[in-house]
Amino acid sequence: DEEIEKWIETLLKRNISLRVNGKDLEIGSEEFKEWVEKFIKEV
């Protein structure tokens, strides 16, 4: 979905790490990609 890709790009540009389930996810890491894929499937 384009919306999500733009959102991810924005996050990448800002180099933010997300806190997911109490863990810091490094943007661009494998864990982050897995989380994004799960997130996309749920939406």
Rank of each mutant, 00 (worst) to 15 (best):
K33P: 01
I8S: 01
I8F: 06
T10A: 13
V20Y: 06
F39L: 10
D1P: 10
I40M: 08
N21I: 06
I27C: 09
E31L: 09
E37Y: 15
E30V: 10
L25W: 03
K13E: 05
F39I: 09
R14T: 08
E37T: 14
W35L: 06
N21M: 08
E3R: 11
L12S: 03
E26M: 10
E42C: 15
I4P: 04
E5T: 10
R14L: 14
S17W: 11
E5S: 09
I27N: 03
V36K: 03
R14D: 05
D1C: 15
K13R: 13
R19Q: 05
I16A: 06
F32D: 00
L18E: 00
G28K: 03
R19H: 06
S29W: 11
N21Q: 08
V43W: 15
E34I: 14
I8K: 01
E2Q: 13
E31Q: 09
I16S: 06
V36E: 00
E9Q: 12
W35C: 08
K23S: 05
E34V: 13
E2M: 11
K13P: 01
K6N: 07
L25P: 02
V20Q: 04
K23M: 08
E2L: 12
K33W: 15
E2N: 10
E3N: 08
L25G: 04
F39S: 01
K13I: 10
L12P: 00
E26T: 09
G22V: 03
E3G: 08
K41Y: 04
G28A: 07
E31P: 03
E26P: 08
K41H: 05
E30I: 12
D1M: 13
G28C: 12
L25H: 04
W35H: 01
T10Q: 11
E26H: 08
T10F: 14
D24R: 10
E31I: 06
N15I: 15
K38Q: 10
R14E: 08
K23P: 01
S29K: 05
K23H: 08
E37D: 08
V20K: 04
K41A: 06
S29M: 09
L11F: 13
S17N: 04
I40H: 03
E2G: 10
F32V: 03
L12K: 07
I40G: 01
G28T: 07
I4W: 13
I16Y: 01
E3D: 12
V20M: 07
S17A: 09
G22E: 05
E37W: 15
E42T: 11
G22C: 13
E2D: 12
N15P: 11
E3I: 11
F32M: 03
T10R: 14
E5F: 14
E34Y: 13
L18R: 01
E31A: 11
S29V: 06
I8N: 00
I27H: 04
I16E: 03
E30D: 10
F39R: 05
L25F: 10
T10W: 15
E31V: 06
V43Y: 15
E34C: 14
E26N: 07
E30Q: 13
E31F: 07
E30N: 08
E2F: 14
N21H: 04
L12W: 04
N21F: 10
F39A: 03
E26Y: 09
K41Q: 08
K41W: 06
E3V: 10
E5M: 15
D1N: 11
I8L: 12
D1T: 12
L25Q: 02
W7F: 08
V43G: 05
I8Y: 04
F39C: 10
W7A: 02
E37G: 12
R19K: 08
E34M: 14
S29Q: 06
E30F: 11
L18T: 00
